[in-house]
């Protein structure tokens, strides 16, 4: 493990990377230099592993309820699941006015998955990396949403859907026309419009991903900083910060979901 505070922080913020190293071939990176040398052709095993694990928990719980869903008196888990679904359905109905069978399940997936990934932050920062260290794994960072790859992966999916539905609803011509002739409906301003609109379009996934990443990363850093303090000070700061995250974690999941629905709603709106 690390010795100086800087090394400790760096260690906790480094993912476990498996990639193609120019010298070692496909292998786990043992230090920062190797990570840098691997470049793009690498995978954050911890981010992917934990996010898929959380996604599977979500699917397991919800599909179990779905399998036994009936109109009788709901009990326990079914109540919880139905509450979440009702909540998501309400948000989607209020925000999204088109007819699209993908949007509501998409929103549900985002909300629950992001919530579960965020909630990994409640696990004390040293537990999992410490355990991994004992087993000889050099790095282990468990919160997938504190990794830009995780959040951009999500927003990239959303961005593809925005483009897909924009083209599907408005047609390729209609979509291009919308990009070229709004906000200023004059031929001389087409380049300016294009610049503005494409920038706006690209901002959507960027803001989605960076908002979630920024919040989770900053929270993580604060947890790590608190962990550096003497042990008798830690609970005083750690507990309020963790309690504060009862608000932050669902809120960020909710924001990601709502913005996704809003963006998709805008993609379905035809102004011409």
């Amino acid at each position: 493990m690390a010795n100086t505070p800087a090394e400790y922080i760096q260690h906790h913020l480094q993912n476990l990377v498996f990639g193609s190293h120019p010298v070692n071939g496909w292998s786990f990176a043992q230090n920062h230099e190797q990570v840098k040398e691997m470049g793009f052709w690498a995978i954050h095993v911890d981010t992917l592993g934990w996010s898929v694990f959380m996604g599977l928990i979500f699917l397991f719980l919800f599909s179990r309820v779905a399998k036994h869903a009936n109109a009788g008196v709901p009990s326990g888990l079914q109540n919880l699941v139905e509450m979440v679904i009702e909540f998501v359905e309400g948000v989607v109905k209020d925000t999204f006015h088109g007819r699209n069978p993908v949007v509501a399940p998409l929103a549900l997936t985002i909300f629950v998955w992001v919530f579960l990934m965020n909630s990994l932050k409640w696990i004390p920062v040293d537990y999992i990396p410490g355990l991994a260290h004992l087993m000889g794994v050099p790095y282990f960072k468990i919160v997938p949403t504190a990794d830009p790859n995780g959040t951009f992966g999500l927003s990239l999916g959303v961005f593809i859907l925005i483009l897909f539905y924009s083209v599907k609803v408005k047609g390729l011509g209609g979509f291009t026309k919308e990009l070229a002739f709004t906000p200023f409906n004059h031929w001389s301003l087409v380049p300016f419009n294009l610049f503005l609109e494409i920038l706006g379009l690209l901002t959507k996934p960027l803001s989605l991903a960076l908002r979630l990443f920024g919040n989770m990363y900053a929270g993580e850093v604060v947890f790590i900083l608190i962990a550096l303090l003497p042990f008798f000070v830690q609970p005083v700061l750690n507990v309020p910060w963790a309690i504060f995250h009862i608000l932050v974690i669902p809120l960020q999941a909710f924001i990601f979901m709502v913005l996704t629905v809003v963006y998709l709603s805008a993609a379905h709106e035809d102004h011409h």
């Binding site: 993912n15 990377v17 990639g19 990570v35 840098k36 691997m38 470049g39 793009f40 052709w41 690498a42 995978i43 954050h44 981010t47 992917l48 996010s51 997938p144 990794d147 830009p148 790859n149 995780g150 951009f152 992966g153 999500l154 990239l156 999916g157 593809i160």
Partner: peptide, 10 residues
């Protein structure tokens, strides 16, 4: 650093 994880996640 952005890498293949992005696509795995997507």
């Amino acid at each position: 650093n952005i890498n293949l994880t992005l696509f795995g996640q997507t």
